[in-house]
Amino acid sequence: MNALLPLWSFVVRTSVKWPVLRTLAPFVPVVALWWAVAAWGPFPPAFFPSPPDVWTKFVTLMEKGILPEYLGDSVGRLAIGAAVGIGLGVPLGLWVGLSKGAHRALWPVLLFFQAIGDIAWLPILIIWFGFGLTTMTFVIVYTVLFPVILNTVLGVRSVRIELHRAAQSLGAPPWRILTEVVVPGALPNIMTGLRNGLGYGWRALIAAEMIVGTSGIGFLMFDARRAGSVTEIVLGMIVLGILWYIVDAWILAPIEQATGRRWGLVTQ
């Protein structure tokens, strides 16, 4: 045990110097274990590829340009979905949050359509729009939209009445109250909604690409499944995991926290 202490303190010191290492280091033993199981384990390679297999596949697909193209397709679809989802969801959420009548009329409907869930729409969308981009875009927008709307509504309604009153008695007209009080007050919730929405959205995208796609990472994985190429499936999973880890841990979570922390508006 004691012999390991210097090693441990070395790990601690380097990870303080380069924080990225702290994130990456834990994957080293996991990959090592994976390698060991692939090499000496009971599974045939067609069933359980080894890290070098996946790396070789990665290099091949990069050289052929397939992986960059598919990755670009998936990310592009998600970006469009996110943009449309925010563009529609935030104004709608503000409206439903501010208007008592709209809230009474629409809240149950919103909850119900959110409950149906994106993927259940695929069959009827395929009937309406066929296999293709429209269907996929619809599914992603739908998935991103509801968490954004619902959280925006919650955010708007969580702004304390005194803040509205304070702004009014300082001379703010209604539209300034919207921009100066309601929107910033709801912002942490809006970010939470966006983070949840994108979390669900990219899963829906993967499903849609598997079921209706002709390109994209989901399609790559499912096409590989049909061909029985487990290496490509694993590669697809790793690419997805890394991509989403970066988006979530390095972009979405920090934005979400930055809005809430300094203002002391703690969101769970």
Binding site: R160, E162, L163, R165, A166, A167, E180, V181, P184, G185, L187, W263, G264, L265
Partner: peptide, 9 residues
């Protein structure tokens, strides 16, 4: 206001 009602942002 008793609760201050400052704009946190």
């Amino acid at each position: 206001f008793q609760s201050f009602a400052l704009f946190p942002w």
